[in-house]
Lab assay of single mutants.
Amino acid sequence: MSDQEAKPSTEDLGDKKEGEYIKLKVIGQDSSEIHFKVKMTTHLKKLKESYCQRQGVPMNSLRFLFEGQRIADNHTPKELGMEEEDVIEVYQEQTGGHSTV
């Protein structure tokens, strides 16, 4: 019986991991920090939209990076291997420009 009891508790931990929340720091170019608590399985588009709304800027005017890689709207913290207190960097999107060649 103890084996049966242990097995469901392991499964519960697996389920808990799926719905687990982590805190992420979003740091802007001006070094301002906003902290977000997100589920591991939530699409990061929600975090990006919330950040842009707080900053009063359109979402397409900023780019969000985690460990140097651009974050897509459909990425989740779990897919990117994010952990508690990880940092997302935000930069002004640069458009235009010309070749110097």
Rank of each mutant, 00 (worst) to 15 (best):
S2T: 12
S2K: 11
S2I: 12
S2V: 14
D3C: 05
D3E: 09
D3I: 11
D3K: 09
Q4G: 11
Q4L: 14
Q4W: 07
Q4R: 12
E5P: 14
E5R: 12
E5G: 15
A6N: 15
A6P: 12
P8Y: 12
P8Q: 15
P8R: 12
P8H: 07
S9L: 10
T10C: 10
T10G: 07
T10R: 11
T10E: 06
E11R: 10
E11F: 06
E11A: 11
D12N: 13
D12W: 00
D12L: 10
L13R: 13
L13Y: 11
G14K: 13
G14E: 12
D15I: 07
D15Y: 08
K16C: 08
K16F: 11
K16M: 12
K17P: 10
K17S: 11
K17W: 10
E18F: 10
E18S: 11
G19K: 13
E20C: 06
E20G: 13
E20A: 10
E20L: 11
E20Q: 12
Y21I: 09
Y21P: 11
I22H: 05
I22K: 03
I22T: 14
I22G: 06
K23P: 01
K23Y: 04
K23G: 06
K23I: 12
L24G: 03
L24T: 08
L24S: 00
L24K: 06
L24M: 07
K25Q: 07
K25P: 04
K25I: 08
K25E: 04
V26G: 05
V26D: 00
I27T: 08
G28V: 04
G28S: 15
D30P: 06
D30Q: 07
D30I: 02
S31M: 00
S31C: 09
S31K: 02
S32K: 15
E33R: 06
E33K: 08
E33D: 04
I34C: 04
I34H: 05
H35V: 09
H35C: 14
H35S: 08
F36S: 03
K37D: 06
V38E: 01
V38R: 01
V38K: 05
K39P: 08
K39D: 02
K39A: 03
M40N: 11
M40F: 05
M40P: 12
M40V: 13
T41E: 04
T41M: 14
T41P: 07
T42W: 01
T42K: 07
T42N: 02
H43Y: 09
L44R: 03
L44P: 03
L44H: 02
K45M: 08
K46H: 12
K46M: 05
K46R: 13
L47N: 03
L47G: 04
L47S: 03
K48C: 00
K48W: 03
K48I: 05
E49T: 01
E49Y: 06
E49L: 07
S50R: 15
S50A: 13
S50N: 00
S50M: 13
Y51K: 05
C52N: 02
Q53R: 13
Q53H: 14
Q53K: 08
Q53N: 07
R54V: 12
R54H: 02
R54Q: 14
Q55A: 10
G56H: 15
G56E: 07
V57A: 13
V57G: 04
P58G: 09
P58V: 00
P58C: 01
P58T: 04
P58A: 09
P58N: 01
P58H: 01
P58I: 02
P58Y: 03
M59R: 11
M59K: 14
M59G: 06
N60I: 03
N60C: 05
N60S: 11
N60K: 06
N60P: 06
S61W: 07
S61E: 04
S61C: 08
L62R: 15
L62M: 06
L62A: 00
R63T: 06
R63E: 07
R63L: 07
F64S: 03
F64W: 05
L65H: 14
L65F: 08
L65K: 00
F66A: 05
E67V: 06
E67C: 11
G68N: 06
G68H: 00
R70K: 08
R70Y: 06
I71V: 14
I71Y: 01
I71T: 04
A72T: 14
A72G: 14
A72P: 07
A72E: 03
A72D: 09
D73T: 04
D73S: 00
D73K: 01
D73H: 05
D73F: 05
D73Y: 04
D73I: 01
N74E: 10
N74W: 07
N74C: 14
N74V: 11
H75F: 05
H75L: 06
P77F: 03
P77K: 05
P77Q: 03
K78H: 08
E79M: 14
E79V: 15
L80N: 00
L80P: 01
G81S: 15
M82Q: 01
M82S: 04
M82G: 05
M82L: 05
E83V: 12
E83G: 13
E83A: 14
E83H: 06
E84M: 00
E84P: 14
E84W: 14
E85V: 09
E85P: 00
D86F: 01
D86V: 04
D86H: 04
D86K: 04
D86I: 02
V87Y: 13
V87F: 13
I88D: 02
E89Q: 06
E89S: 11
V90K: 03
V90S: 08
Y91A: 07
Y91K: 05
Y91Q: 07
Q92W: 10
Q92N: 06
Q92P: 10
E93C: 09
Q94D: 05
Q94H: 08
Q94V: 13
T95C: 09
T95E: 03
T95A: 12
T95K: 03
T95S: 10
G96K: 01
G97S: 03
